[in-house]
Simulated assay, not measured.
Amino acid sequence: MFRSRSKDQQAATAKVTADQPQQPRDPQAPKGRPTPKRSDSQSQRRSRAQTPANRKDAVRAQREARRTDLARQREAMASGDERYLPVRDKGPVRRFARDYIDSRWCVAEFFLPMAVVILVLTMIRVRGVQDLALLLWFVIIVLMVLDSAVIWFRLGKLLPERFPKENLKGVKAYAIMRTLQVRRLRLPKPQVKRGERPQGKP
């Protein structure tokens, strides 16, 4: 009996409250939460508008974004645009290392053509020709090692002078790996001519 009476009282109170007209909120009264900035509100509306409706649309949007990023990276590889280069090639230090390699002749860039020549010579069943092929192989390997050592020590001196506050880890190895590529096939494309002084911090 007491329980049914209390329920009736609550229902009556709720009905009276619903019948009463709601008072308009005072614009000067605090809302209990900070007013969001206009830029934040616009960005939230844009993000809600651009959010895919289902999983299929989300996958399609991710695929399109990935395709766009790859296209930008390919263009950056050809133009040297730092904004869209892969992380491995970004930054002024890596740019200087690439320019240093591209501005000089490197023995290692002739390794692949010479390897083809040596392979052809070894297929000729003449003792003198095969001895010449072995000699050429030995000479090209020795010259590559010496040239790579010169590049390694030269960059080891230049990089700390020009970029004393930058992270230089892996930069010399990055430069040596670039010497193994034929110049016209290097990516990112060379931005300096042979003999041209590479740009960088003085």
Rank of each mutant, 00 (worst) to 15 (best):
K15D: 09
P24A: 04
V145M: 10
A173Y: 12
V87Q: 15
R33L: 06
P92W: 12
D40H: 03
P164A: 08
V87N: 15
R45A: 03
R3P: 07
P160R: 02
P188Q: 09
I140F: 01
R186H: 05
R94K: 14
L146P: 13
R74L: 14
S103R: 00
Q20R: 06
V142D: 08
Y100W: 13
P27M: 04
Y84Q: 11
V117D: 02
N54K: 12
S43K: 10
D89F: 15
K15G: 05
S79Y: 00
L185M: 09
P86R: 13
A14S: 05
E64M: 15
P34T: 03
G200M: 11
R154C: 07
K169S: 15
P160Y: 02
R74H: 13
V142P: 08
F111V: 00
T35F: 00
P21K: 01
T122F: 10
L121C: 04
M123C: 07
R83M: 10
P36S: 02
V93E: 12
G80S: 00
V126T: 12
D8L: 14
P36Y: 00
F96C: 12
S4A: 07
K31C: 05
R60G: 15
M123Q: 08
R83E: 12
R45D: 04
A65N: 15
C106S: 04
P190Q: 01
K201N: 15
S41T: 05
A108K: 05
L158S: 11
G128W: 13
R104W: 01
Q20Y: 06
R127Y: 11
Q44I: 03
R127W: 11
F111W: 00
S4I: 06
M77N: 14
L185Y: 10
D69I: 15
R48N: 12
Q9W: 10
T13P: 05
K201S: 14
R25N: 06
A71F: 13
P160D: 01
R162L: 08
I176W: 12
V93M: 11
A78S: 07
Y84I: 10
R94G: 08
S103Q: 01
R3E: 11
K165C: 11
Y100T: 05
K189F: 03
R60M: 15
A53F: 14
D57Q: 15
T35C: 00
N54M: 11
V93A: 09
V145K: 10
Q181A: 08
L168R: 10
G128R: 15
V142W: 06
R33T: 07
T122C: 06
L143T: 03
V171W: 06
Q20L: 04
I151F: 08
T51W: 14
M177P: 04
D99E: 13
K193G: 02
M123L: 09
K15Y: 05
V16H: 04
C106V: 01
M123R: 09
R197Y: 06
V116K: 01
F110Y: 02
D57F: 14
A18K: 04
